[in-house]
Write a protein that binds this DNA or RNA. Structure first.
Lengths: 301, 301
DNA sequence: TTTAGCGATGCAATTTGTGCACCACTTTTG
DNA sequence: CAAAAGTGGTGCACAAATTGCATCGCTAAA
């Protein structure tokens, strides 16, 4: 669109780091691009770039402008999707940043269900940790985030939160498998695998174990991949940990899941969120609505 | 700004109702303006105007676009104000749509206090009824609304609500003046003035009186101007009604105010609000913050 | 039926944007 | 220490987009 062209050029310069480099990327002469930038700054009333000997860099005013540009592009995309909506076209794109745990079962199921009703809607799904997820939201790179307790919460607006007790996953013939809930103290006597430190499951386990003084957490395997840990159980009889939303063991007769006793370990919080103050495109808003519905339903089961 | 020019032209056409009329208002030929509109619709991918024999009118897609335009202009203004803020300029403009009752004392006092700290900030204040106030918010014509219980609430986001019991205003030598609170039944025996039907005070009184079957509300004067009604008390010994936030009788020895008994008349709700989902300019957000503080303080007094 | 007002369009004039060559400057490189 | 390789900025001629004018076809009001 015509009215966003200056913004696109500005974005290009930001990404390239210099006007000349950007000009090569964008099929325009450096001089023309330079004049566009200068004219914009003139009309805007403020400089937005620092001129350095090796290129340009955004100044604080430029940072604000960049956020405005991103927000504006996203707004305009939403407008177009709304308009095609009322023309009966029903298209759109949803991008989700989520914790690893949701990749194998939960999100595929939900996205398939959504696309069954709205085949014109496409998706982007990326695994992101809590910090990156929030950053993606604020850069308008993702519409929706679904993560476990982000650390920093300035731009993250929690739309829905659901407590997730940690479950222990073990073989069906494991000595603890006949208990309806398992005690942390019992688990620590058997081999177990655990995620590395910057994952919510590990943080909660550490906190809980620290209360049982004298015991230290000592997984036989430490990994960042929940997928790996879940499959490892097929080879060694070791307990792994997962949030229920990441589990779907009904078809696997070899494995069972048992919740950890609530008095031992605090539950994690699965947070469904978006960029604070942002109005989502129709498709994303509807998908978020579906997630809320299914999450609150899971709670009731 | 350059990138908003198409939008300004579109707005002009909407306001004028025809391309030719708009072209006269905006120093451009009808043909050029016509081509701008057509080109925009081309690039946008949808028509936004219905072509009628006597001019043009927005179609539904155009209505959505118009809202986008308004929102965009307001966003850009906010961006500029933020940027000048970090240049240390501290300027801005706040526009308030409010109930009549707040015009004589409350808003003048608060605005003066705000401008004492921020002399660069200018204000627009307009008296609007509940429906018009909400419409102004959604058209980005006002930033903040301060009204008594708007009827329709779709676009009105209540930021702060405070209950306001109706007070009776009477001469200091009135027979009821020695009571700390007055009963509705007693008041109805004396002459009183009341606002016309579409004001919250009147609606609450009607509801209350309707419970006292057999009695009908019968003001000796009915007016839309609270100012007039308050001053009328100087000429005839009649009771008038007001919300406390609209009163400031400490300097007037002739008049006293007494709350109506709570069990007789429900209190009104003074609602401080903005357009749902909108991020206000810095100046407006700060002024709103001040209003919240003072309103919650008034509650404690 | 006439008339007045509307949006659309072809064409020439004009304004605006672009590319090229070059400048002044700073950091990196030899 | 000097040359080289970057950078953003600028004057000038040319290309492209925009505008204004005249005019068409159309519809509702007079």
């Amino acid at each position: 669109m015509r009215h966003l062209r200056d913004f696109q050029f500005i974005e290009g310069v930001i990404k390239a780091g210099s006007i000349r480099k950007a000009s090569e990327d964008m099929n325009i002469t450096a001089s023309a691009l330079n004049r566009r930038i200068n004219r914009f700054e003139d009309e805007f009333g403020f400089e937005i770039f620092e001129r350095l000997p090796r290129g340009v860099r955004l100044n604080p005013a430029g940072e604000l402008l960049l956020h405005h540009i991103r927000s504006q592009q996203s707004d305009f995309a939403r407008l177009k999707s709304q308009v095609s909506d009322l023309s009966g076209v029903r298209r759109g794109h949803v991008s989700v940043a989520c914790s690893q745990a949701l990749l194998p079962f939960f999100l595929p199921r939900e996205i398939a269900r959504y696309r069954n009703d709205h085949p014109g809607v496409t998706f982007t799904v990326n695994a992101r940790d809590r910090v990156d997820a929030e950053r993606e939201l604020s850069e308008f790179a993702s519409d929706i985030a679904l993560v476990f307790e982000p650390l920093t919460m300035v731009d993250f607006e929690v739309v829905y939160a659901i407590a997730q007790p940690i479950h222990a996953v073990m073989r069906a013939d494991h000595p603890l498998a006949d208990q309806s809930e398992v005690r942390l103290r019992d688990i620590l006597r058997f081999p177990y695998v655990a995620p590395s430190e910057n994952y919510a499951v590990r943080a909660l386990l550490e906190t809980a174990v620290r209360r049982l003084s004298g015991i230290e957490i000592a997984p036989v395997i430490e990994s960042e991949s929940f997928d790996f840990m879940r499959h490892y159980g097929a080879w060694e009889d070791a307990i792994s940990f997962q949030f229920p939303v990441g589990l779907n063991l009904v078809n696997d007769p070899q494995l069972v899941e048992r919740p950890l006793a609530k008095r031992d370990v605090a539950p994690g919080n699965l947070l469904l969120g978006q960029l604070r103050g942002r109005t989502l495109p129709v498709a994303s808003a509807r998908f978020m609505q579906q997630l809320m519905t299914v999450l609150s339903g899971d709670l009731l089961e």
